[in-house]
Amino acid sequence: MKKRQILAFIGAIVATCLLVTGLQVFSPNSVGAQSGTILVSAAASLKEALEELKPLYKQTKPNVNVIYNFGSSGALQQQIENGAPADVFISAAKKQMDALQSKGLILNDTRRNLLTNKLVLIVPKNYSGITSFRHLTNSKVRKIAVGEPRSVPAGQYAEEVFRNLGISQQVKSKLVLGNNVRQVLSFVESGNADAGIVYATDAKISSLVKQVATAPANSHSPIIYPVAVLKSSKNAAAARDYVQFLSANRAGAVFQKYGFGRS
């Protein structure tokens, strides 16, 4: 009889443990439920698309709050390297993501190429006389807005275009540097620059500028937007889920609406 009681007692303990484990697994507050907040550091050119995607993601994961930190990819990279909190990083070029990966700061298995873009030449809406990148050497063009090449991928791509077209020296003294691609856009919108080099997606959102030329694909490095979860993420499960969401067709339709290509 005692033996039966002991076995029954052990069985009850095991059942209780299983029940508690089950409750932990399915609890809304557990990691698997993907709750809490994730901070996404993303290239400035993604602002409108990601803002539109925010409520769509909220529909699928109502317990997850997504906060954005937009800026130049180089500045965001430095923030992350200096210990700034972030869960997901989306760069406008491979260079910045490669740097973080080489320092062991991302979860390698989460890295993927998310989007593509095109580099374009823009001028103020009523400006005339510029229809190609080579026209930037004309004396009529006094100021050309570009991203700061060391930290802004759009500026790096622009630098490559100038070099491949053989006009780097002719335009060097005309360059006005922006801290990110959206500042470059604003320089042209305000008329503080006669022309600017931005992404096709930036030109698309502004009614104050017009796109007059697209840089040939072979004149610069491929424009790729990689995404990855950071190793320092405090909510890696939710961050991984968010990256999956960005790669799905529903998010892809929104990105395409803003002019991005799928990688």
Rank of each mutant, 00 (worst) to 15 (best):
N180C: 06
V212L: 04
G22A: 11
A195I: 01
S207Q: 13
N179W: 02
A248T: 01
D194E: 11
N113A: 10
L18W: 06
K47I: 09
Q170V: 01
G259M: 13
Y157W: 12
S27W: 02
S168L: 13
G259E: 13
G147R: 07
V254A: 06
K204F: 09
V146Y: 05
R134E: 15
T137F: 08
P85F: 09
K174Q: 10
L50C: 03
S41T: 07
A237P: 00
D109G: 09
L136Y: 00
D98Y: 05
I197K: 03
V184G: 04
Q59R: 09
E81W: 01
G252H: 07
S233L: 09
I13W: 04
N126H: 11
V212S: 02
S232R: 11
S102N: 12
V40D: 09
K234L: 13
S186A: 14
N29R: 10
Y57G: 07
L177G: 01
S45L: 04
Q79S: 14
K257V: 01
V141Y: 01
E51K: 14
P62W: 08
A251D: 05
D87C: 07
V243L: 09
N108M: 04
M97I: 04
L39N: 15
A154S: 15
A15C: 11
L76P: 00
V227P: 00
L115P: 00
Q169T: 12
K210Q: 15
K2C: 05
T21G: 11
S207G: 10
V212T: 01
L100G: 00
K234A: 14
A248P: 00
F187N: 03
D98W: 05
D241T: 08
V227H: 00
L165N: 11
Q34S: 06
S73A: 07
M1E: 13
Y225R: 02
R182P: 00
F187I: 06
V152N: 02
A86D: 02
Y199H: 08
L18M: 14
F89L: 12
Q211Y: 03
H220W: 03
I130N: 07
R134P: 00
D202K: 05
R4A: 12
D194I: 02
Q211R: 15
I205E: 10
S232E: 09
A8V: 12
T60Y: 03
P28M: 11
I80W: 00
S263L: 08
A248L: 03
I144D: 05
Q96G: 01
T110M: 05
K257L: 07
S35V: 12
V176K: 06
I205S: 12
L230D: 06
V25G: 04
V88M: 12
K95T: 11
A253M: 07
V25R: 07
L175W: 06
Y157E: 11
I80Y: 00
S35T: 15
V20D: 13
A84K: 05
S151L: 08
R182Q: 10
A236M: 08
K61G: 06
R150Y: 08
T60V: 10
Q170C: 06
T137M: 14
Q169P: 00
T37H: 11
A15V: 15
P62N: 13
G22D: 09
N63W: 03
R250T: 15
Y127N: 06
T214H: 05
R134N: 15
